[in-house]
């Protein structure tokens, strides 16, 4: 969403040049969402709308708590409520996951984006959309393994959580983290967040959640939004959180080195044609051909209807 922040850029979409790296500190930030502490109050959603000056349309109740029913170009984060009967304990569990951009270390959206600088990854790990460069093609939607970006039907630009890059750039935490009343959303360096997660996981394990763990999927190089899950072995029960997310092989094939080969093939064909002409020379009609044609035409004129045109 935001224009360039005073943050250093690590990667830029559709760009062949490497951003300057001399100032890079290597310090990565992360948001840690402790699903086991979430009470589903949606303060994070409100804070997100408020900070980013967004308004969601008034929706309809379809019998679930999710509101709105999906991420939209205005709602960059969404509490997804799942009811789950734990077969091991017989307990009913209410799993509430705050959905939104995961800020992948290897972002599929950035890989898919055809517009230079429309998607950037800062050195701190935040993946941000730079709207003024966005062309509205929705390739980022195809690239994302988490189904996060949404295209606005108003201005045809892609939107998603910025991890409050504008706040982070000036030393603040994201609005959602600030608003969360149970501190289920925490923000800090990625290392600190992992440590914090470890303590939470130890606690959860001592309370019988043997499979509690940190969701920081390696398939996308790790993420800068991480979840503490009570059931890390079954992430799908949290409203379809993918178990092993990675950039689709179709996207890799579409956006990979094949492109260079394809352009090479086009260039080869064009250059090849040029040299074919150089070597073989033009394929010209000879005077004999013309004479033969004239003879044939005369023959035809004698034997039947005349050809359409015949000039001497």
């Amino acid at each position: 969403m935001a224009s360039y922040q005073s943050l250093d850029i690590k990667r830029r979409s559709a760009s062949t040049s490497t951003p300057p790296a001399v100032r890079s500190t290597g310090l990565e930030v992360a948001k840690l969402i402790d699903v086991s502490k979430c009470i589903g109050c949606k303060a994070c959603q409100s804070a997100c709308l408020e900070w980013n000056n967004l308004r969601e349309e008034v929706g309809v109740n379809t019998g679930v708590y999710d509101n709105p029913h999906d991420l939209t170009a205005n709602s960059w984060t969404l509490m997804r409520f799942s009811e789950w009967d734990n077969p091991d304990t017989g307990n009913f569990e209410w799993l509430i996951r705050k959905d939104g951009c995961m800020h992948c270390a290897d972002p599929g959206c950035l890989k898919a984006c055809p517009s230079p600088g429309a998607i950037v990854q800062y050195t701190n790990g935040i993946v941000d959309f730079v709207s003024e460069n966005c062309i509205g093609c929705a390739y980022c939607v195809k690239g994302c393994p988490f189904n996060i970006p949404r295209i606005s039907q108003v201005d045809r630009k892609a939107y998603k959580c910025t991890l409050c890059s504008d706040r982070v750039a000036v030393g603040q935490g994201p609005a959602c983290a600030k608003a969360c009343p149970t501190a289920a959303i925490m923000f800090g360096t990625k290392d600190d967040m992992k440590e914090q997660a470890d303590r939470r996981i130890t606690d959860l394990k001592s309370r019988g959640f043997a499979n509690a763990g940190l969701y920081d999927p390696a398939g996308v190089g790790g993420t800068h939004v991480m979840y503490v899950l009570h059931h890390l072995d079954k992430p799908e029960i949290y409203a379809g959180l993918p178990k092993d997310p990675q950039i689709s092989p179709l996207v890799s094939a579409w956006k990979g080195t094949g492109k260079i080969l394809a352009l090479g093939a086009l260039a080869f064909a064009a250059v090849g044609a040029f040299f074919h002409h150089t070597v073989v020379g033009p394929n010209r009609v000879s005077e004999t051909d013309e004479e033969n044609a004239a003879d044939l035409a005369e023959e035809g004129a004698r034997s039947g209807p005349t050809p359409e045109t015949r000039t001497l």
Binding site: A273, V280, N283, R284, D289, E290, A293
Partner: peptide, 29 residues
Amino acid sequence: IVHVYAGIWVKGSIRGMTEGRVTGGWAWR
């Protein structure tokens, strides 16, 4: 690319599509 080059290489072809007529010799050949 093949189509365009063939038109360039085989002299007298482009005329067929710009003017609608080719020479008898072109057709003979």
